[in-house]
Write a protein that binds this DNA or RNA. Structure first.
Lengths: 161, 161
DNA sequence: TTCCGACCTCAAGCACACTTGAGAGCAAGG
DNA sequence: CCTTGCTCTCAAGTGTGCTTGAGGTCGGAA
C-alpha cells in the first residue's frame, strides 16, 4: 500500500481528494484512477483539474471491492453499477437490490463447492481421473469451481520453486 | 476447442501423442506444451523429437485441471506434483494423499463463503460500507473470498458494455 | 515566498496462463 | 511416393487488472 503514509487532511467540504478516498477504502490511488478510466466511478474535478469525490463514492468503491472478491470482472461490475439510480445518491435499499444477485450466486457456489468436496476423495484417486464425465472437471459451469484468481491459498507458501 | 477435430488414431503402443492427450483431457495442445515448459509434465520424445505420453499423464493433467479450478497457480501445482513418488507411476493412494490438502482448503472456503453470504445482506446496504472492519472487505485472508478468476458468473452475460 | 507532499496525464510495464503465427519436419493411409 | 494432417520450435501477442515512471502542476503550512 504505497501513497498512504503521512496525510495532511485539508478540504473536507467540496469533496474528498483521491488520497482521502484511498485511505478510507484501502485502495491504491492508481487503482482508483484506473476505476475511473473504466467508468466505474465518476468524480468531478475542481478548478485545477484534481478529482473530488463524494462520500457515496466510498460505498461505490466498497461495492466494487466486494464484487471483485466474489469473482466479478470490471465489465460485469460496470453493468451492475449501471442499475443504480442516475439522478440521486443510492440508498441502502438500492445497494441491497444490487447485492441480491451476489447472494444467489454465493448460494450456488457454496452448493457446488460442497459437491466438489464430496466428490474429491472418491474421484481424485480413482478411474474417473481418466476423464469422460467426471464432475470435477466440468462442475456445471466452470465458473462455479471458484476461479483461477486466488493465489497462495492452497497451503503452500508463495515463492517456492 | 481448436486442434480437436478429425483425429486419425495410430500408435497406441509406444505412448500417446500430444493430440491424443489433448482429446482425452479436453486441454488444448498448446496448453499441454505450456505445462511441459512449466515442468508440470515430462513426456519423453521419440526419435523424431515428438512428445510421447504415458496414460498416467492423463491423470496428472487431470489433477492440474482440478487444482487450477480450485485456484492453484502453476507454481503451486508444480510444488504439489513434486511430492509424488519419483521412480514409479503414482498410485491412487498417492493422488489421494495429494488431494487431502485441497479437501481441507475446500472446507475452509465453504465456511468462508457461508459467512460471506450471511454477512452480505446485513452489510452491503448498511453503514459498514463506510468501511473500517467489515468482514466483507477482509474475509480472513482475501483468498478465501474465492478469487478474481471466474468470469461471467454473476448473472450477467458476457459482452455487455 | 518557499517548499514538500499530493495531485495530474500518458505511456509503458507486469504477472499469469495461455494462444497464435511462421516456418518447417514427421507419419501413415491411399 | 504423395498428400494430408499432426507435430515441432520460438517469438510474439492476448486479456485482465492494475502499477510504475517521467515530467509536470497544485495547495497549504512554515
Amino acid at each position: 500500500m504505497p501513497e498512504t503514509k503521512p496525510l495532511r487532511r485539508p478540504l473536507r467540504r467540496d469533496g474528498l481528494t483521491i488520497g482521502q478516498i484511498a485511505a478510507r477504502t484501502g485502495l491504491a490511488v492508481s487503482a482508483i484512477r484506473y476505476y475511473e478510466s473504466e467508468r466505474l466511478i465518476a468524480p468531478w474535478r475542481n478548478d485545477a483539474g484534481q478529482r473530488r469525490f463524494e462520500r457515496a463514492d466510498i460505498r461505490r468503491l466498497s461495492f466494487i471491492m466486494i464484487a471483485q472478491g466474489l469473482g466479478a470482472s470490471i465489465a460485469e461490475i460496470r453493468t451492475q453499477l449501471c442499475r443504480l439510480p442516475k439522478g440521486r445518491t443510492p440508498t441502502a435499499a438500492d445497494w441491497r437490490r444490487l447485492s441480491e444477485g451476489y447472494r444467489k450466486d454465493l448460494d450456488r457456489r457454496i452448493t457446488q463447492l460442497q459437491k466438489l468436496r464430496d466428490d474429491l476423495d472418491s474421484c481424485i484417486g480413482c478411474g474417473c481421473l481418466s476423464l469422460e464425465h467426471c464432475t470435477l472437471y466440468n462442475p456445471g459451469d466452470r465458473a462455479g469451481a471458484a476461479g483461477s484468481g486466488p493465489r497462495y491459498l492452497l497451503g503452500d507458501s508463495p515463492g517456492q520453486s
